[in-house]
Amino acid sequence: MSKALLMPLTPSTKSQNKTKKMLKAKKKLWSPLSERLLQTRTLSSTICGFLQNQQQYLSNSQPHSLFPFSPYNNNKKSQTSSSSGFSSHFLNFSGKSFCSAQSSEKINLRCWNCNAESQNAPFLVCESCTTIQPVDHSVDYFQLFDLENKYEIEEDHNLQVKYQNWQKKLHPDLVHSKPEKEREFAAEQSARVIDAYRTLNNPLSRAIYILKLEGVNVNEEETVSEPELLAEIMEIREAVEEATDYQALKEIQSLMQEKLQDWSISFASALRGHKFEEAKNCIRRMTYYDRVNEEIVKRL
């Protein structure tokens, strides 16, 4: 018992990796060891059905762990896979993304430093040795912040807090004494997290980004002549230029923010309905209003 409790972190994570290998090989192992399984079943204090036993049996057969039923091992298991064990583990990663090929890839992610397998969905930092991992571009910005892939982000998601938490783990200052390889990873990862935060935090850039994820690019080169909109923007820009006092600028700014909000609501509904042309139109309008806003900020 005491030996199992004192076991350092690394071998136990290694043994978990082995668990997964064993799972793959479970069919082979199944029949000859079925008798032992029955034994463990009677010994186990927390029987959560057949599948849990299966996992315990597997850990039992690990060479590292002499005491498979130690509280330590049980805890570790309930952390990685929820109480229903093996089956929920499977559900977990097949539900995360709809592409099965992608999910199997993710499962195989390992730390380049200590070789421990990733346990959290966006694998940016190794949980075992806190080493920063190379950038994985298949992880999009929404996944990075554990958000649903949808346009509206509710306030309670605390994007800023999540962003700060990443920086606490990824900031280049944390690894200044580490090898160059990790310093590079830290620079790239933290830059990407900054970009992700900025992109998602601004309604306009978030709109452009989410359309990009849908495979729709907002054409940068096209010049659209929408006389009414352009006349309106021209008028607003002139008003900003001619505004002499703080109050006047503030008034225009609040008007712009109102318009931005209105159009971002229209964008969200266009996106939900997969009306991409309409969504692009909303983005165009938002770009103009956002630009006016920028100009006001410069002058304030």
């Binding site: 907002v218 054409n219 002549s225 923007i233 983005i283 770009t287």
Partner: peptide
């Protein structure tokens, strides 16, 4: 009267 939707210039 023309505009560049990408950058919001008029």
């Amino acid at each position: 009267l023309v505009g560049a939707p990408a950058c919001g210039d008029v």
